[in-house]
């Protein structure tokens, strides 16, 4: 469960400014949907993967691929049915399995999917949660919006832990050895588990509200910011690098 997505590692990407990193991620994500060659998109995925590999190691670098694998399998299963008019590329006896057009589109679809996933993942792995929040605020996210996100991320481990404890307690009350019985008991346990978890979560609200009020929230005096975004070198240089990368990619691989 997420409490922080930051993965400590090494490499220049950790020193790149979070604001320019977010901009570059978003611009490249848009560019892969413009008419660019699949080779370029795969190259982008490969570079992102290699950066992740160098920064975090093989096991961590492969994890995004594992999470998107079910969606890729779904694309592989369904895309060939979409383009059936072009010449056959793969056949089994007399049965046409995939056309050249289907393979081209499947290739493009998978390339885009992997590229976007790796770029977004690299951003959250190499930027601390507080820097992500400060970046959002720099781009105009209101103070209360940033506070909601911060509180939500503080709530997640608390709710997840209590949900698991409550769920375990309910399953202990109805022990069943066979698989079918266990499945049935998990279904029947949804209602009491959710009710108990909601009670637990709602009961925490008054304390949190009192804490926020004591710290001055909602009286017009915003909390002092102890952390600021620090950049190695001028911020302009970071943005310039980001623009050069995005422009070069488009000029080199646009069709």
């Amino acid at each position: 469960m997420i409490s922080s997505t930051y993965v400590a590692g090494k490499g220049l990407i950790y020193h790149f400014d979070a604001r320019s990193k977010l901009l570059l991620t978003l611009v490249l994500c848009i560019e892969v949907f413009l008419p660019v060659s699949p080779t370029g998109i795969y190259l982008l995925s490969l570079i992102s993967f290699l950066i992740a590999l160098y920064a975090t190691g093989m096991k961590q670098a492969l994890s995004p691929l594992k999470t998107i694998l079910p969606l890729i399998i779904m694309m592989v299963l369904f895309t060939p049915f979409t383009y059936t008019d072009a010449p056959a590329a793969i056949t089994a006896g007399n049965v046409q399995l995939a056309t050249t057009e289907a393979l081209y589109h499947l290739n493009l679809l998978i390339a885009r999917f992997i590229a976007i996933t790796y770029m977004a993942t690299l951003f959250v792995w190499t930027t601390t949660m507080s820097d992500i929040m400060l970046t959002f605020q720099w781009y105009g996210l209101p103070y209360s919006g940033a506070l909601v996100i911060t509180l939500a991320f503080r709530f997640i481990p608390f709710i997840a832990d209590s949900f698991k404890m409550i769920s375990d307690a309910h399953s202990l009350r109805r022990v069943s050895s066979d698989t079918k019985g266990r499945r049935r008991s998990r279904i029947f346990d949804i209602l009491p588990t959710i009710s108990s978890a909601l009670v637990f979560a709602l009961k925490s609200i008054p304390n949190l509200a009192a804490t926020l009020e004591h710290r001055g929230y909602s009286t017009g005096h915003r909390r002092t910011r102890y952390r600021t975004l620090r950049t190695k070198g001028p911020l302009f240089t970071h943005f310039l690098i980001c623009v050069i990368i995005a422009t070069s990619f488009y000029l080199l691989f646009s069709l």
């Binding site: 909601v148 996100i149 509180l151 939500a152 991320f153 709530f155 997640i156 979560a201 609200i205 926020l212």
Partner: peptide, 11 residues
């Protein structure tokens, strides 16, 4: 509202 919104986002 801040707390309820963050609570439901977390949920």
């Amino acid at each position: 509202n801040v707390i309820i919104t963050s609570l439901f986002t977390a949920l």
